[in-house]
Design a protein around this nucleic acid. Sequence first.
DNA 1: TTGAAAGCGCTACCAA
DNA 2: TTGGTAGCGCTTTCAA
Lengths: 341, 341
Amino acid sequence: MARRVTIVDVAARAGVAISSASSALNGRSGVSERTRSRVRQAADELGYVPSLRARSLSAKRAFTVGLVVQRNVDVLESDPFFGAFIGGIEEVLAADGYALVLQVGSDERQTLGRYRELAANNRVDGVFLNELQVDDPRIALLTELGMPAVAINSDPALASDFPSARQDGTRGVRDAVDLLVGLGHARIAHVAGPEQFLHTWQRRRAWHDAVADSGRTPGRVVTGDFTYESGRRAADELLTGPDRPTAIVCANDLMAVGLIMRAEEIGLRVPQDLSVTGFDGIALATYLRPRITTVQTSPRALARAAATLLLRRIAGESVEDVEIAPAALVVRESTAPPPAA
Amino acid sequence: MARRVTIVDVAARAGVAISSASSALNGRSGVSERTRSRVRQAADELGYVPSLRARSLSAKRAFTVGLVVQRNVDVLESDPFFGAFIGGIEEVLAADGYALVLQVGSDERQTLGRYRELAANNRVDGVFLNELQVDDPRIALLTELGMPAVAINSDPALASDFPSARQDGTRGVRDAVDLLVGLGHARIAHVAGPEQFLHTWQRRRAWHDAVADSGRTPGRVVTGDFTYESGRRAADELLTGPDRPTAIVCANDLMAVGLIMRAEEIGLRVPQDLSVTGFDGIALATYLRPRITTVQTSPRALARAAATLLLRRIAGESVEDVEIAPAALVVRESTAPPPAA
DNA sequence: TTGAAAGCGCTACCAA
DNA sequence: TTGGTAGCGCTTTCAA
């Protein structure tokens, strides 16, 4: 096996000092154009590839960032956000020679442990703060660890020193409510996500305020957990009692699907007897009939923005929050005027 | 910021040489029990965490493995295999202090490039060879690069030096066919995956042979691409002509879903007019009505087996292929006797 | 069994 | 602008 080509070889071939070769290769200033080009050429000729390990050790950077997904492993399967989000991150990282380390924690304790490990090992130069929670313990931890991080969809109100990439979803939710109100609905309920998540409250508040602003009284709120099954349960809770809502705004598509399926089993037709809206814009929402009216988010673009932010932050630049185009309402077939009373 | 605790500090505190400390910490032989315990204690007291970077540089290992997913980024979203598989890998890696680097390639050229980079940078100690193709170019590449790898569901017939973790799916497909034959179906078609994939042929052959073994003539084969949309297209192709099949075995669940949806639009009821089976066992297959009869795979367990194999392989052990329990047929509501002729 | 020292390949500082 | 060199923190010979 041929010996690895090192920067020593390159410097020797170019007839310059190692330090000059290093500076030249890394595009640092203080190197004459002539030296730079000679070094470049020597590197090319030798097929030089810098050793990431040595660079890491000496530059004290890992050239890697981390994403820790906290999710019961079984539930990961049905999370469509995941794939698109990772694809977006990768697009940005790859261009900069960075790589993504992906970790999975099944509960909070484990997740925090993973962050600690990443930091202790210096395995990554920064991490994404995804799925923010109310009083998220990771914020204190990452601050304590001094780990650069970029939040995803953090709330502006959230006091944290971490920059954030955001996509507003509240406007889409408001549009959904306005659509329903415009169609004549008066009893509009909400199926929310778990109370611990920031986005649960963002969506819930948007629904609440929009209904209130229309002069109607916000309907019942049922708390689900973003799964299909919890959508079904929400249907049972909301649709079997008196004063049944004529429209339901769900905090994500998967619950909307579950809710619709269950509603139809109960004997309600969507959208004739009941209008339903979702949130996310997953492909599944277009597979079923009726296709679901939803708020279309852009996980990939959001991930791209977040990754860009993180790399800048790691490079030491001071960065501002970034906001991509808001998630827009996509009107499909799960919404219609309420049944004549 | 406190200076990092290094092995030098530990050695000093324990009153031994650095090399002894290293040997002691790494459980190597040739260290007296007394020295070992003193070093351990010193390390504990100081809260010593070895530097992954320095270890990497000197030990020439990255303590990281790679998974390159080749998929159009947009399609990644709806791949449920992905999440479960990664969860399984993570479970095993985490226990050994290894981490997973995840990369995404949108086409073959890019994917091969990612493998090359991983190797050139020594970013990983090994990789997973997922979604094997016929004459997969990655095999030659990884061999050339000398990169340890473990294949997922490779074909025994595939000549490759890489060990493989496998879950047999052919038995499940045969069981599906047998089920249909037992119900009285005579015209059983198949919706296959893209011809480039090994598992496409594994499933296709299983379907073909099972039908033939039953004394029936294998029906038509339509090639899809594992997407929902291609399932719909397959329905159009198979169900609109003469000699319509009464049962269709699909190479994955998503196509089965698309096919069923389209079939119902065309006016065929499933399972009364048409029986359909899937493959994978994704959650979605249980959301819809009828719930889909399918072959239930175990991506998480398969990933665990593959990761275990890879770590062993990296450690230099010679490893044999591993086969986990075969994917079993789960009979649900999308299969019934054919309509009376 | 223990210890000294030579790398691993690169960056960064400082002197020339 | 260039070059020499001291680390980065660990593993691994090789003597003692």
